[in-house]
Amino acid sequence: MKAVLCREYGPASTLRVETVPDPRPGPGQVLLRVEACGVNFPDTLIIEGRYQQKPPMPFVPGGEVCGVVTAQGEGVSEPAIGARVAAVITYGGFAEAVAVDAAKAVPVPPGVSPEAAAALGLAYGTVLHALEDRGALVAGETLLVLGASGGVGMAAIQLGKILGARVIAAASSAEKLEACRGAGADGLVDYSAEGWREQLRSLTEGRGPDVIFDPVGSPYTEPALRSIAWRGRYLVVGFAAGEIPRLPLNLVLLKNCAVTGVFYGEFTRREPAANRALLSRLFGWVAEGRLRPAVSQCYPLEGAAEALEALAGRRATGKLVLLTHAARPG
């Protein structure tokens, strides 16, 4: 099979597509013929050795896949051979085949495309876990999304609306904000402009957002936290800006607010049944037409480095997905 290999830590340009032996499913696993794999910010970290998990070299990056079951390991009866499933994994997805734990494989309903299914796992799974489980967002509240034009940000806009929130999107250019408006944002804030907190204050009638979804980090974290509503919840999702912010904790005291971590990958490992239920809800919303994953561009496996560079450079709007030869038309 063909796979994207990381043989040493470094930038995406060091990745190569090579022919390697097909994997075999171990006990409790199934083998997938990969049709699509989502491209995510953790992929940019794992190939540089900056992620929490460090796979043994060489390894295949890629943490969310959709594919068809072609073989079952010992002790596995479900999912059945021939079933289309999606799974969130740590690495291994940028390939034509991958072995995954059967317990992580979630059935993909009819009518949901492979690229849509591959876009749901990490971005939309992270967001739903963050907004409901960690942020306790309820209908009628105001949600501020930082980095709103990226894949996770777009997911936060869409799911915030499904959960009944008023969503304010923050991004760094007019073009990105227009994409956020198209995704359903009720209000827009350009946080590259001076005085962006005043924009936010005006949009919330001086009250501030109830929940802040932050996958970006410094330099936006402290100004956003200063703007949060009384009893607000600040969700720490990631640090795409590259720097981990240091917060003055007196702000947390003064606003009687909570700063809450969101580690979706560990949630999937510690609470697999809860995660399967979460992903099943997402797939159900897609099948019903309530949710349309914001996939902006698809690449072949050979385009993995280009996709990762676009993501790391914050040039991507929406989700990026790799398609294998099996999944591409023609």
Score class of each variant (00 low, 15 high):
Ala193Met: 12
Gly49Pro: 02
Arg276Gly: 03
Leu320Asn: 04
Trp196Ser: 03
Ser13Gln: 13
Gly135Gln: 05
Arg269Lys: 15
Leu320Gly: 07
Ser202Gly: 14
Glu198Phe: 04
Ala3Val: 11
Gly318Met: 10
Glu194Asn: 00
Ala87Trp: 04
Val20Asn: 08
Gly135Ser: 11
Ala36Met: 06
Asp22Glu: 15
Val286Thr: 11
Arg314Ser: 04
Val112Arg: 07
Ala169Gln: 00
Arg50Gln: 14
Glu48Arg: 15
Gly62Asp: 02
Glu309Arg: 11
Arg207Ser: 12
Asn256Pro: 00
Glu18Val: 00
Glu243Asp: 06
Val112Ser: 05
Thr90Ser: 13
Phe263Val: 12
Ala240Gln: 14
Pro55His: 01
Glu288Phe: 03
Tyr220Thr: 10
Gly303Arg: 04
Ser227Glu: 05
Pro215Cys: 09
Ser113Met: 07
Lys104His: 10
Cys37Met: 00
Pro215Gly: 14
Asp101Lys: 14
Phe239Ile: 12
Tyr234Phe: 15
Lys104Met: 06
Ala312Ser: 14
Gly26Lys: 14
Ala307Ile: 11
Val85Tyr: 03
Glu141Lys: 11
Tyr91Met: 06
Cys37Asp: 01
Glu306Cys: 07
Arg226Asp: 07
Leu122Asp: 01
Lys319Thr: 01
Leu45Gln: 15
Arg207His: 12
Ile162Phe: 02
Ile162Tyr: 05
Ala103Met: 12
Thr70Ala: 04
Asp214Ala: 09
Cys6Gly: 07
Leu131Cys: 11
Thr221His: 01
Ala165Leu: 07
Asp210Trp: 03
Val60Met: 03
Gly111Asn: 11
Arg246Cys: 10
Arg50Thr: 10
Pro25Trp: 13
Val138Lys: 14
Val39Asn: 04
Val259Asp: 01
Thr70Pro: 01
Tyr264Pro: 03
Gly184Glu: 00
Leu308Ser: 10
Leu308Trp: 01
Val211Gly: 01
Ala294Phe: 00
Gly160Phe: 08
Leu322Val: 00
Gly184Leu: 04
Leu143Met: 09
Trp230Tyr: 13
Gln158Phe: 03
Leu200Pro: 13
Ser113Val: 06
Ala273Lys: 12
Thr14Lys: 15
Ile162Asp: 02
